[in-house]
């Protein structure tokens, strides 16, 4: 399927020659560009699920994209709970999505 990157725009200036950078997400290597956020880089690579709900494991992705909703929080280079939408992507970044956590004190769990 065609790339989601906007390559031309009738009004906005779209720079075609931005250097590419590589990053790792859940153990796989992907490519995006300097100036991307983690959120835009993952979307560009077709990744919509950034974490799962800690208790129910329902998949979550970008919702507000400006740091209000905290739905896109991921672990970046071992720092947990970084908002993907507010974090600029850097070359060699290692990103992990949030996982389901055990809920030992909740009734009805195995």
């Amino acid at each position: 399927m065609a790339s989601l990157r906007i390559k031309e725009h009738p009004i906005l200036t779209v720079d075609q020659h931005v250097p590419e950078i590589q990053f790792e997400f859940n153990g796989k290597i992907y490519t995006a560009r300097e100036g991307d956020t983690i959120a835009s880089a993952l979307l560009l690579n077709g990744i919509r699920t950034l974490r799962v709900h800690e208790e129910t494991a329902s998949p979550r992705g970008i919702y507000c994209n400006i740091g209000h909703c905290f739905e896109c929080r991921v672990t970046v280079n071992e720092t947990a709970e970084k908002r993907a939408c507010l974090t600029p992507l850097e070359d060699g970044m290692v990103i992990h999505s949030g996982q389901r956590l055990p809920t030992p004190f909740k009734k009805g769990e195995e």
């Binding site: 989601l4 990157r5 906007i6 725009h9 906005l12 779209v14 100036g35 991307d36 956020t37 959120a39 835009s40 979307l43 560009l44 919509r48 699920t49 950034l50 998949p59 979550r60 992705g61 970008i62 919702y63 507000c64 994209n65 400006i66 939408c85």
Partner: peptide, 19 residues
Amino acid sequence: PGVMSIGAAQVMANVHHVK
């Protein structure tokens, strides 16, 4: 995932140049 606020889509397209 894939449901977002309208402002999220605006920032993605006009600021990050990703649809």
